[in-house]
Design a protein around this nucleic acid. Structure first.
Lengths: 113, 113
DNA sequence: TCATTATATCACAATATCAAAATATATAAA
DNA sequence: TTTATATATTTTGATATTGTGATATAATGA
């Protein structure tokens, strides 16, 4: 049965994909961007104004969010407009808000890691 | 109006809480632990066997997950049994799996951050 | 009590992530 | 063309996170 140990690496790869996916929302700047885009699609300059981060930071984090599958973009004249790629992202954030609401103080105090 | 600028830090704090919450699932070891505990509650030794990580690592990551509100624990004789604290965690993972399924290759290839 | 087992914590080195600044590219207007 | 504007990328240094190994604490049983 040579295929026995070929399933383990796949599993490991799968888990790393999920971890990477959640990493997308694990940074305040990226989280802000996602929230802003859930309100309405925006180009980079609008995002820079909306969340008050530098242009290079917004572009960099957008690239990460795009890789993670949270957002897609399209060129529109001289602008690049970003939008949330999947409405289920809204549901994930909604669920998270409900859970966090019962644990906010706990999480805020976390100093361990 | 001295209360104007007191709302902004609150907002910032809220966002950092959410980011921290998602950070809980952004590490492969922690993700594995959560998945294992979604199957059934386990003590630390059982988790060590189940996911094949060191005892100190499992304990450390459990502490993180506990702070983030993903798990709770109870002493049971000489064991400490951990379980998922909120069934909505299962829903978040389910949603994530659906989204990731459409973007797996994309996410896997992400080298940016 | 002492020994054993289970779990938690600490200290460390390696690595990853972050934000900022500088630079590059691309599009549009002049 | 050239110039200006919008966005993307790269580099760098500071900080955070990671896993490992050693040690500490806590609970049980002899």
């Amino acid at each position: 049965m040579p295929e026995l140990n070929t399933t383990l690496p796949d599993n490991v790869a799968q888990i790393e994909i999920f971890a990477k996916f959640f990493h997308g929302l694990s940074n305040p700047t990226r989280f802000r961007i996602v929230e802003a885009l859930l309100d309405r699609e925006m180009n980079v300059s609008q995002l820079v104004d909306a969340i008050g981060a530098s242009q290079s930071q917004v572009s960099n984090q957008l690239a990460c969010l795009k890789w993670c599958g949270y957002v897609t973009s399209r060129q529109e004249g001289k602008y690049v407009v970003y939008r949330i790629s999947d409405e289920r992202v809204r549901m994930i954030l909604q669920l998270a808000k409900e859970i966090v609401a019962d644990n906010a103080e706990h999480i805020r105090c976390c100093t361990r890691m």
